[in-house]
Structure formats: structure tokens, C-alpha cells
Design a protein around this nucleic acid. Structure first.
Lengths: 122, 122
DNA sequence: TTATTATATGAATATATGTTCAAATATGAT
DNA sequence: ATCATATTTGAACATATATTCATATAATAA
């Protein structure tokens, strides 16, 4: 063993934990709330139905029924998912009579989405 | 009613579906497999534990036990999540004796991650 | 060989989540 | 007022998923 024992500590009952590396990363680790928010944002984009909705809204402002017809799910399911997206501030809507027109609330989302597409489409 | 009835059709038993808009979006809609892959990628990033792992690995190559110690979860849970990330080709590893050193497999992920952070941190 | 260590894996459990169904609002037309 | 339509909402159900625990590999040391 070449390394000094000081560099290794025992947590989780396993040796060979490199303390320096861990501290280096800990120093730049984002605060927990940031991580939670980030994970939530990704999670919301991580359902095919919502992914389709976001994609559609990135092209056109659409009403609930248009979205439902477009992606082929019930109007109720659409509304439920739109609420999730609304709560995360990813979409907004304006009302015109009975009809609610939804659109993207944030341009970051478009970028995030495009970056994701680039990853998937290579 | 000013618009011609032709533009409105009845799907899901609701009127006021705008056929033109739907067709316009349908034309540019990504194929289902693309949507599924995209959603899967986002979903994998959408769990706080995995988010932390990805963040850590974006800074340092780390072994399983380092990761576990760093984010404060069990080695088993870490290993399970690393498998998820491995399956999605988001991380790779090299073995040095008993130790498995993990790192990011793909730079797109770093960009995706940074774009997400920008959205969250404003 | 046996012992130790780092990681992986399978089963079980508890929790989260997406859809459906039914019913409730909300708005406009008759 | 009543009727029709667009959307929302709550409850129920079924499925997915993250963690834990116990055990199994894999690699090295003694």
C-alpha cells in the first residue's frame, strides 16, 4: 500500500474511500433545494405524455382538446398532466371564453428540450 | 360562428378542435421512439439521488463507495442507481482491481445538466 | 485454502405516479 | 331559466420505482 492511511476513511463499512476527492466534490456540490428542483424539472419532462405535450406546445399554442386529439389521450388525462406542467411553471394558459389556450411559459424549457433531443438523436 | 364547420371536427366528443393546427404539429412531431427515448433520458435525470450522482461525476471520476459516502446513501442503493445510469449510457466505468471507477459517458449530459441548472437557478 | 473488501444483484416492501371514471365548474347559447 | 360544451378535479386502481436487506460475485491478501 503506497498511500497514507490518512487519505482513506471508513464510512458505510467499506474502506478505500478517498477523502480528498469527496471533499473536493462536496465543496462544489449544489445545495439540496437546487438538486431537488433540478430533479423535479427533469422528472416532469420524463413522462412520454408530458414530453409530447411540451413538444407540441413548443410549436403551437393549443387548447386542451387539441392537445388531447393530437397525442391521442383522453381530455381528462391531458388536463391532469397540464396541471402538473402548470405547477412546475413550464406552461401557462390564457382563457378565451370556454377555451383554455396553453403555451410554454419559459424559453429555458425549449433549450433543455432541444439539448435532450440532440442527445437522443445523436 | 364565423369559422367554417370544416375546420372543426369532433374527436373525444368535444368540439372546437382545430384541425389545421393539429395537422401542422403532427407534421413536425417526432416519431414515437424518439419521444420515448427523450422521456426516458429526462426520467433518469429526474431522481434526486441520480441527479446527485451525475453532478458528482461531472466533477470527478469516483468509485462506488466514494459516491455512496458523498451523497449519504447505502452502497447498495448507489450500485442500483449506477446500473440505471449505465443502462441509459449516461455513465461508464473502468475497473482497477476490486474498485470500479465511474465517470460520465457522454458530454451531452453535461450540457443538458447545465441547461437544467440554468433554468432552476435562474 | 480462508478472510477481507468492493461491488453487484434479487426479492420484498413501501411509496409515487399515470390513467380512467364520474362528477363538478365555468362559460356561452337558446 | 335550461342546455351544451370545455375544462377541471377527486377518488380509485393499477403500475412503476427507490430503498433496504440478504446474499452472491469478484478480486486481493494472508
Amino acid at each position: 500500500m503506497k498511500r497514507k492511511l490518512k487519505d482513506k476513511i471508513s464510512i458505510c463499512e467499506v474502506f478505500y474511500v478517498n477523502k480528498e476527492k469527496i471533499n473536493a466534490v462536496k465543496k462544489v456540490m449544489k445545495p439540496n433545494e437546487t438538486i431537488i428542483s433540478l430533479a423535479q424539472t427533469f422528472k416532469v419532462l420524463g413522462d412520454p405524455t408530458r414530453t409530447k405535450i411540451i413538444f407540441a406546445l413548443s410549436k403551437e399554442e393549443l387548447c386542451v382538446c387539441d392537445i388531447a386529439a393530437l397525442i391521442g389521450i383522453s381530455q381528462s388525462a391531458t388536463s391532469h398532466q397540464l396541471r402538473v406542467l402548470r405547477n412546475m411553471k413550464l406552461v401557462k394558459y390564457r382563457k378565451e371564453g370556454k377555451i383554455a389556450y396553453y403555451s410554454l411559459d419559459d424559453n429555458h424549457i425549449r433549450n433543455l428540450f432541444d439539448e435532450g433531443l440532440r442527445h437522443v438523436e445523436e
